[in-house]
């Protein structure tokens, strides 16, 4: 299930502009990696290049390698659609499909990949995914109501359930709590801690405390200047990054002396 990620010399472009420059890093399976950095430094861009969502933007492209358990995602014969079904993604704003019920939201990914699955089996997967996302108890009695009727925090956990229902190898999260209240945030953070047992998780966050709380490893992205591409300044053990970063810029950012 959980797989390791090795990124080598990754350059990410929007048309002709280089947005993220020369990123190399390794991510261990069954770990949580937090990506932090100032706005516009390319955290989301980098994250979206890990499941080939980046290339959906017209004329966007990448150079370099993203290896998942030794398999290069950008090798010519790799199918981006399959890549995305192996690497789940949770977005900043909760986005359950508004026309589908809670049940159908969770089942959506499975129905794509395994067309003729017996109803009972599907029921099991939906229940397990919702339980894993700590949402089952709250929605068990209204599985067939629209997902858009849930609270923001519940919707985000529904999106997590939807993402893990297809048993991905890796889970990418782009500021999953930034639209949520503190209690919902707490629940998602707890959930991330539990999901770590099964998945490799990469999370982008603006909240330094959150990075410190949930992650094992933290990577700091920065901009050299206005109009310059973003780059990875340093990545390391979360405790080390927050107590004794090796780079001055990291230290300034973490202690709020940025800019």
């Amino acid at each position: 299930m959980a797989k390791r990620i090795d990124v080598a010399d990754l350059n990410i472009y929007y048309d002709k502009t280089l947005a993220v420059q020369d990123v190399s890093l390794s991510i261990e399976p069954r770990s949580v990696t937090a990506l932090i950095g100032p706005s516009g430094c390319g955290k989301s861009t980098f994250l979206r290049s890990l499941n080939r969502m980046h290339e959906l933007i017209p004329r966007a492209r990448v150079e370099g390698k993203v290896m998942v358990d030794g398999q290069d995602l950008y090798a010519p014969d790799v199918d981006p659609v399959t890549v995305r079904s192996h690497i789940g993604m949770v977005f900043q704003r909760p986005n359950p499909f508004p026309t589908m019920s809670i049940y159908d939201n969770v089942a959506a990914g499975i129905k794509l990949n395994a067309k003729r699955m017996p109803k009972s089996e599907l029921d099991d997967i939906v229940e397990r995914s919702l339980r894993q996302a700590n949402l089952w108890d709250e929605v068990a009695d209204r599985l067939h109501k629209p997902g858009s009727g849930l609270s923001g925090g519940q919707q985000q956990r529904l999106c997590i359930a939807r993402a893990i229902a297809v048993q991905p190898d890796i889970l990418l999260m782009d500021e999953p709590c930034s639209a949520l209240d503190p209690i919902s945030t707490q629940k998602i953070e707890d959930l991330i801690g539990e999901l770590k047992a099964d998945y490799t998780i990469v999370i982008v966050t603006h909240n330094m405390q959150q990075a410190a709380r949930v992650s094992d490893v933290t990577g700091f992205f920065n901009l050299r200047g206005v109009g310059q591409p973003g780059h990875l300044v340093e990545i390391g053990d979360t405790a080390t990054i927050f107590s004794a970063p090796s780079n001055k810029a990291t230290e300034d950012y973490i202690s709020g002396r940025f800019g």
Partner: peptide, 24 residues
């Protein structure tokens, strides 16, 4: 947002349209 949710689940272009654009 919804189109991307479908694509991120591993939907093809047409499956994305069937899941989000047509119902919408």
């Amino acid at each position: 947002l919804h189109e991307e949710a479908a694509l991120a689940l591993g939907a093809t272009h047409w499956e994305m349209i069937r899941m989000t654009v047509l119902p919408f």
